[in-house]
Amino acid sequence: MNLLAMDAEQPAANIPPPAGAAAPGAPRRPVVMSVRGLRAGYAAGAQALQGVDLEIRERTVTAIIGPSGCGKSTLIRCLNRMHEVIPGAWCEGDVRLGGRDVLQLDPVVLRREVGMVFQRPNPFPTMSVFQNVASGLVLNGERDRAKIAERVEESLRRAALWDEVKDKLDKPGTGLSGGQQQRLCIARALAVEPRVLLMDEPCSALDPLATARIEELLLQIKDQLTIVIVTHNMQQAARVSEYTVFMLMGELVEYGETQAIFTQPSDKRTEDYITGRFG
């Protein structure tokens, strides 16, 4: 920690007031996912999560911040069990989705309820724009063409991409710009109608304009589903989230309403991080 740090009372620099913050005193939404004593790691290397406790509330945006390597990706990948896809990865603890034990669920069923958007846009290279969005439905056996077409349009609209691609639905998805590809991936995830959408640094490969469009769309869809977004852009966390989680070295340091975390963090390490003194 930086000894040249300025007065600790000074509020975080350059952080706009949290637009997405819940109105003070508003009733808390019900918990949709809860995590208790979650520990996780990889075949090689040290343990990545040292016992994390967390509650994610329905139809809110929760941001996870922290320096790289602190376990943000590991944490959200445990929520839809994408963590176990990595050979040798392990996790233990109690993760619940609406009361059901996530570790006992069929991962295939779980992942339809808890969708994911990755750091780099990853549209399927052999598929058109339309097929990409429809893929989750089609690969899971949906045959009703009218229903598929309807869901594709609806998902593209929710991902704020419809107007840009409605004339090139049968062009390859990989032919779009980076920002469009990422919104395509969001539409693809939305088309399965998940309850929870996990996003792992979805804007880190995008330019500021494309980033702004994604933040905008998050604010639009957040009253329809629960969003957990990993970001190491603190302004972004402040702009889009109601709740913020701060992690450090595999531990959850602080968790609370975004406004509170950014204006009066209760842990010295959180304060140091959001004022840019380390990380």
């Binding site: 896809v85 992942r111 309820e113 969708g115 893929s135 899971n140 399965v192």
Partner: peptide, 11 residues
Amino acid sequence: TIREAALALGV
């Protein structure tokens, strides 16, 4: 990443 994208859709 392509495999992950598909797995994450519940396929």
